[in-house]
Amino acid sequence: MPRLNAGGWKAGDVKIHSGTLDDIPSGWELAADMVDRAVVGAGGAYNVGQQFGADEVTPNITTSVWVNNHTLSLAQMPSHAHPLPTRKPGSSLSQSGYVNIDVVSTATRTSPLNSNNAGSSHAHAHGAGASSSSSAINTRQKSIAVIWIRKL
């Protein structure tokens, strides 16, 4: 059904204006809700009057971080000692992982046997790095700017 009738354009009708913003004809106004908007047909995926989209989008970026392998030297290790597991008198000498020391009965010991202190707590560095980047992406389609006016 044509929108033109004997009286011309109906109130609310929208059209492209071929002039400038300063010479919009009497009885018409700038269709402000259409400024900086592209027109998409409604009735399928979009409803009449629905506004959507953006001029730019910033995508999600995955950042990579890594730490280089590093083996501590004796000077870089914290000062520490290790308790020594011991073999009680009369037990087998073949027990794996035990120091071959005959000790006095556990009832008379007041502290465990430990290795000598080692290390000095000096600083050390692993070396590390990270990389990431993101920037806005222009998502506008190729377009031409026009002036949309609406009949009062």
Score class of each variant (00 low, 15 high):
Ser131Arg: 08
Val48Glu: 14
Ser91Asp: 14
Val99Lys: 08
Gly53Phe: 02
Lys15Ala: 14
Ile24Pro: 00
Ala38Thr: 10
Ala136Ile: 03
Ala32Cys: 03
Val146Thr: 10
Leu113Met: 12
Val35Asp: 06
Arg37Gly: 01
Leu30Tyr: 06
Ser18His: 10
Met77Val: 02
Ala54Leu: 05
Gly127Glu: 01
Ser143Val: 09
Arg150Gln: 13
Ala145Thr: 13
Thr108Arg: 14
Val65Glu: 10
Ile16His: 01
Leu93Ala: 13
Thr58Ser: 10
Ser64Thr: 13
Ala118His: 06
Pro112Cys: 06
Ser143His: 15
Ser91Glu: 14
Val67Asp: 01
Ser143Leu: 12
His124Tyr: 15
Tyr46Gln: 09
Met34Thr: 03
Leu4Lys: 09
Trp9Leu: 04
Asn60Ser: 14
Gly12Asn: 09
Ala125Leu: 10
Val14Asp: 04
Gly19His: 04
Ile61Ser: 15
Ala31Tyr: 00
Trp28Val: 00
Val67Gln: 06
Asn100Trp: 07
Gly119Ile: 03
Val99Thr: 13
Ser134Val: 06
Thr58His: 05
Ala123Cys: 02
Trp28Cys: 00
Gly119Leu: 01
Gly41Ile: 13
Arg3Glu: 11
Asp22Pro: 01
Gly27Pro: 00
Pro85Gln: 12
Gly127Tyr: 00
Ser92Gln: 11
Ser96Phe: 07
Arg150Asp: 01
Ser79Ala: 15
Ala118Glu: 14
Ser121His: 06
Leu113Cys: 03
Leu84Gly: 02
Thr62Gly: 08
Asp55Lys: 12
Gly27His: 02
Gln51Thr: 13
Leu93Glu: 12
Asn138Trp: 05
Val65His: 08
Asn117Lys: 11
Gly53Glu: 05
Ala31Ile: 00
Asn117Cys: 07
Asn116Ile: 11
Gly44His: 04
Ile16Val: 15
Val48Pro: 05
Glu29Thr: 08
Leu74Asp: 15
His82Arg: 12
Val146Tyr: 09
